[in-house]
């Protein structure tokens, strides 16, 4: 389960760049239609487009220049599934060849029986995953029919204890932090196991109720303060006060 964090971070397309704390200072809030930069040298990335000599924002969020590429990171909004995202979802139905999983997105997830980590007999599917069960899964395909999930990686599978809660999905990169630094800090300070899904759902299980409460409050603190710089220091400070 612990490896999931690293995977989510390495594979998530919105994971933070190593120089997050430095580049964040260069970020500024842009609104749709606003010119971010002018000049032929720049390339419009996610959330940006070129009109003549200008690169314009086509999303509300933080504009970021990484070399020549200019992109806009959204601050709020629904989760949009992408291939290789690790997500936390809930089984809502069982069909003849797999499980329908609510991943809190515009399309429901589907976990084919072949994508379970071991052989499952078709007559015993509900013994492996029943309706209402919560799982950590990886998205291996997004297409017009829906989102296909897999459990065939380390750290994926059914969640047996603890609890899950949601934050705004766009805040996930800050919660994970540079090379997982933020989430590691929270794990170390609370002694909890934590899995952060790219869909904003987070699983926590700890040694005591108080540890679990503290871990959740720490994560919510970051989710609320995702815009500010020097978050790691702020988090350290928070732990000295809480």
């Amino acid at each position: 389960m612990k490896n999931t964090i690293n995977e989510a971070q390495e594979l998530g397309d919105s994971a933070e760049s190593p120089s997050i704390e430095e580049t964040v200072k260069k970020r500024r809030v842009v609104i749709p239609g606003e010119v971010i930069v002018s000049g032929e040298d720049y390339l419009p990335g996610d959330g940006a487009r070129r009109v003549g000599a200008d690169v314009l924002a086509c999303k509300f969020g933080l504009a970021e220049e990484a070399g020549r590429v200019v992109k806009v990171l959204a601050l709020t909004g629904a989760f949009v599934p992408r291939r290789n995202n690790v997500v936390i979802g809930r089984v809502t139905n069982i069909t003849f060849n797999g499980w329908v999983v609510d991943i809190d997105a515009a399309q429901s997830g589907f976990l084919p029986i072949d994508e379970s980590p071991r052989f499952i007999n078709k007559n015993e599917m509900d013994q492996f995953l029943a309706i209402g069960d919560v799982i950590v899964a990886k998205i291996w395909s997004v297409n017009v029919r829906g989102v296909d999930l897999s459990l065939k990686s380390k750290g994926l599978g059914k969640i047996e204890g603890g609890f899950i809660f949601r934050v705004i999905p766009n805040r996930v990169p800050r919660i994970i932090g540079k090379e997982g630094s933020m989430i590691t800090l929270i794990k170390d300070k609370t002694g909890c196991d934590i899995t952060v899904g790219q869909n904003g759902w987070i699983w926590i299980q700890g040694p005591t109720t108080d540890a679990e409460i503290k871990a959740r409050r720490a994560i919510e603190f970051i989710a609320d303060k995702a815009y500010i710089t020097g978050l790691t220091e702020k988090m350290e400070e928070w732990f000295t006060q809480n």
Binding site: I31, P32, G33, G47, C58, K59, F60, G61, A74, L75, T76, G77, A78, N170
Partner: peptide
């Protein structure tokens, strides 16, 4: 815009 919907 606040919902992060792509718009010109």
């Amino acid at each position: 815009a606040h919902a992060g919907i792509p718009m010109k």
